[in-house]
Design a protein around this nucleic acid. Structure first.
Length: 364
DNA sequence: AAGACGGGGTA
DNA sequence: TACCCAGTCTT
């Protein structure tokens, strides 16, 4: 069985494409899951939900989406919000640059497009946080335009349907998949077609143990015919995660804990967290965090007392967190906006990443 | 082209 | 533990 060549699809018969479209769309109409952003057609809802869904599961997104549109029902209200508030509603969802981008995007849409989300790819791609996938999703789902919306699910489905052995982690493969997506998308119902591909990838054409016996497209699936569905798509192995050592300081005043706002760039940017210093795990355990608090905020403390050591694994990084209890001796009178004493009850008023929330709650 | 960037589910 | 995922931006 030879590898599929993408150009083969340009030779596909119109009837075959029609058959694919019809089978997929009718399957989607019958079998799709209910989601809050599917109840009405609202480009703002499509935009917010698609950004939240980037690298994130539906079940995780739903409560965040509902809170978000409740607080910011329109683009204009989002544009007027404080970034701090946007970030607070995003806390726990991960990839926090998405929150920053969506806020910047709302301002741009209000300033340049009078609060209306653009209807063409060129303008959509100018909005921070919208790349080729999200632009295609908005065009097809919110505006019924026959654009491709190719994400990881769709690449998996395509690689199996058309027996594509090219590595899907390569940029060139994604480009070819998008060409393919444009070639096969339904002109009459691009929304159901694109969502159908993704829903199929999520429910039937899963990464492991695909449920081919329930698949509405098994009759045209070349991987299924060849019996190789389990070994597709081809994807380059990821590098091993690198380890990062981090010292955390635990300072308590009554029932309050000291939190610091993280720097505006890099990991967990702009979120509130325990005071942290990266890159040290040596014989002088805890010394760096004492120094950091002294130099940055004029906080004098007693010697560090080890409390707990925890590791937290991110996608490509393993944090080794060493937590030290520090007794507060004195503080300067200067009011630093980037440090706060916060009680456990007040924590939900701050954008605190899950990794830190877990540590803090464990201590209390 | 490669690296940075969270978190939760699953085996 | 290791791998997976409804991606985008920066370098």
């Amino acid at each position: 069985m030879g590898a599929y060549k993408i150009n083969d699809w340009q030779n596909l018969k119109t009837e075959d494409i029609n058959e694919l479209q019809h089978a997929l769309i009718s399957w989607f109409e019958k079998n799709h899951r209910q989601m809050p952003w599917r109840e009405t057609i609202n480009p703002y809802y499509t935009w917010i939900s698609e950004v939240m869904l980037q690298q994130t599961r539906v079940d995780t997104v739903i409560p965040y989406f509902l809170r978000f549109i409740d607080k910011f029902p329109t683009v204009k209200q989002l544009a007027k919000a404080d970034e701090e508030e946007v970030l607070r509603l995003w806390a726990g969802l991960g990839y926090y640059s998405r929150a920053k981008n969506i806020h910047r995007g709302a301002k741009l849409i209000c300033e340049v497009y009078d609060g209306k989300i653009p209807e063409n790819q060129k303008e959509l791609l100018k909005i921070p946080g919208i790349g080729s996938y999200t632009a295609g999703a908005i065009l097809s789902i919110a505006y019924e335009k026959p654009a491709a919306a190719v994400d990881g699910n769709v690449m998996r489905v395509f690689s199996r349907l058309f027996l594509v052995y090219k590595d899907i982690s390569e940029g060139s493969t994604k480009k070819e998949m998008e060409k393919l997506g444009e070639a096969v998308v339904s002109a009459t119902n691009p929304s159901a077609f694109n969502q159908g591909l993704m829903e199929l990838g999520a429910l039937i054409c899963t990464p492991n143990s695909p449920k081919c016996s329930s698949c509405p497209l098994s009759f045209i699936c070349r991987a299924r015919r060849a019996g190789v569905q389990e070994s597709l798509p081809v994807k380059k192995k990821k590098e091993a995660v690198k380890s990062v050592n981090m010292e955390l300081g635990l300072l308590q005043k009554g029932d309050k804990v000291l939190l610091t706002k993280r720097p505006p760039e890099g990991l967990l940017a702009n979120l509130w967290a325990l005071p942290a210093v990266e890159g040290t795990a040596d014989g002088n355990a805890g010394r760096s965090i004492v120094l950091e608090l002294q130099e940055s905020y004029g906080i004098e403390t007693s010697d560090p007392e080890p409390v707990v050591e925890k590791s937290h694994v991110f996608t490509h990084m393993k944090w080794n967190m060493q937590l030290f209890r520090l007794k507060l001796l004195s503080m300067s009178d200067i009011d630093y906006p980037e440090i706060q004493w916060v009680s456990l009850k007040e924590m939900d008023q701050y954008a605190i990443p899950t990794a830190f929330l877990k540590v803090i709650k464990e201590i209390k």
